Simulated scan of single mutants.
Amino acid sequence: MDGATVVDGAAAAGGVTADGERLAGTDAAFAVQRCREKLREHGARCTAPRIQVMGVLADHVGHLTVGEIHQLLVEAGGRLNISTVYRTVEKLTGLGIVHAVPGRGGEASYGLAGDHHHAVCSRCGAIEEIPGPQLARILAAAVKATAYRVESLIFSGLCPTCRLV
């Protein structure tokens, strides 16, 4: 499968900047180029599986499990097996290009790394991104109180849908 095919089709709704931020309405070639730049910044090769996985994540608003990433790739005509998707996601996570959010039942969901944090529903597992600047004071207070190098915050609670149930 051509690596650009999935990215081109997936990126039409949004690419990624060099910082991993989503860009709505970017063209596919721009999105592919940004994915490649991000990999090169980390000294990583621009393999077809990496570009394909990043394309799926760039197109999807929110977070996906490895199984969901694999399913979207297959639906787009991809031939990657699920173990390749898993290894690719792990590599991209290790490079800091993708981040993992722990989910219900221990299965992580993945999204493109960027300046944001997460709210996770403790009942249904829904994940919402919270822009980093909105939490800057809280993050600074957490660092001061704990002396940790805090890289992300994950808030847990009930989403609006689950609160109605």
Rank of each mutant, 00 (worst) to 15 (best):
A119Q: 02
T161C: 03
P49R: 12
G94D: 13
V66M: 04
L92N: 02
G9R: 03
A58G: 07
A126N: 01
K38Q: 03
T161M: 05
Y86N: 14
T17R: 10
G20N: 11
R104Y: 07
A136W: 02
S152G: 01
G25W: 12
S122M: 14
L95P: 04
S83F: 11
A140Y: 00
V98P: 09
G14T: 05
V6L: 13
L135P: 07
V6Q: 04
E41R: 04
T47K: 00
G125S: 01
I127E: 09
A11T: 09
G67Q: 13
G43I: 05
F30R: 12
G77L: 14
P49I: 15
V16Y: 13
R36F: 07
V53T: 10
G106Q: 11
L92K: 01
G114P: 05
V89R: 13
G157F: 14
R50N: 00
L72T: 10
V150E: 10
A126R: 02
T146K: 08
E21R: 14
V85G: 07
P133Q: 10
E129S: 14
A76N: 13
L135F: 07
G55S: 12
F155A: 15
E21T: 12
Y110F: 15
S156D: 08
K38P: 00
R149L: 06
P49S: 14
E90G: 14
Q52K: 06
R79Q: 14
F30C: 08
G114A: 12
C121I: 11
M54G: 06
A11E: 03
V66Y: 05
I69F: 00
C162N: 05
A142H: 10
L73I: 15
